[in-house]
Design a protein around this nucleic acid. Sequence first.
DNA 1: CCTTGAAACAGGAATCATTCCGATTCACTC
DNA 2: GAGTGAATCGGAATGATTCCTGTTTCAAGG
Lengths: 138, 138
Amino acid sequence: MTLDEAWRILQENQFKRTKNRDTILQFFSNKDRYLTALEVKNFMADDNPGISFDTIYRNLTTFSELGILEETDLNGERNFRMQCDPGVHHHHFICTACGKTRSIPHCPMEMITVNLPDYEVEGHKFEIYGKCPLCVEK
Amino acid sequence: MTLDEAWRILQENQFKRTKNRDTILQFFSNKDRYLTALEVKNFMADDNPGISFDTIYRNLTTFSELGILEETDLNGERNFRMQCDPGVHHHHFICTACGKTRSIPHCPMEMITVNLPDYEVEGHKFEIYGKCPLCVEK
DNA sequence: CCTTGAAACAGGAATCATTCCGATTCACTC
DNA sequence: GAGTGAATCGGAATGATTCCTGTTTCAAGG
């Protein structure tokens, strides 16, 4: 997702345009990886060294709820990345060495839900972990 | 997995037979659900009110490493359950209302790894969340 | 521009799960 | 039944995340 798309969504939902939100979104743009609140904070060091975690988490949560960011739990920590393809359901391979991700278009749900009659499916999580080609070389 | 199987594995690996381990394993036996360290502690209240979280986590981690328990992260918390079918790869449906799980024999990996040439796959996570038939009724 | 109310923010305290650490106790071996 | 390393206890420490309260900033209207 581009920054313009993100801001369009934010403004459609009556969120104000602030410097912090701008910087946070810029940090995520063009990165194909999951990032933590701490990494956001470190990136903000130049721009706004005093930013509070409250502000970071509040905005990350907002972005995630609006579908601007994708969120996942990695080792018990919240991780976020720019929504790579809004509206198109997908999953990720995540490199455990460098953190890079690779989109996986397949979704295992279709062939499986048939076997869960009377169950009310609300969501699912499918992630593959390992080393990306670049990290395998090393 | 039965308690006897669990103890066989523990003794094969030179772990001592202690009261705490016994009580913890009993708590997990015959439960088809994921449980937290806190739930273990509450269960121990009768038997050993003063048990420390250190002891609980140390043992849960040991059990998990030995394949006696299965472990997963749910909302950033470590959750454990008795290994339901040792050696047989499977996944779970997890009820978000009552916590009960249901084994899913299918694994999506076979049909997908083909699309990850040069990637070194180390693991994966696949879980389905929703309401079980009993909780749907309510 | 200037005002103004609501949204956003800073800073620090509080919370919650988990881990670490030093001192003590226990399970197994001889 | 004594010795030894494993296991445990209790409490302090850590790290991520959230809460709280007073202050600042945004953007819409006059």
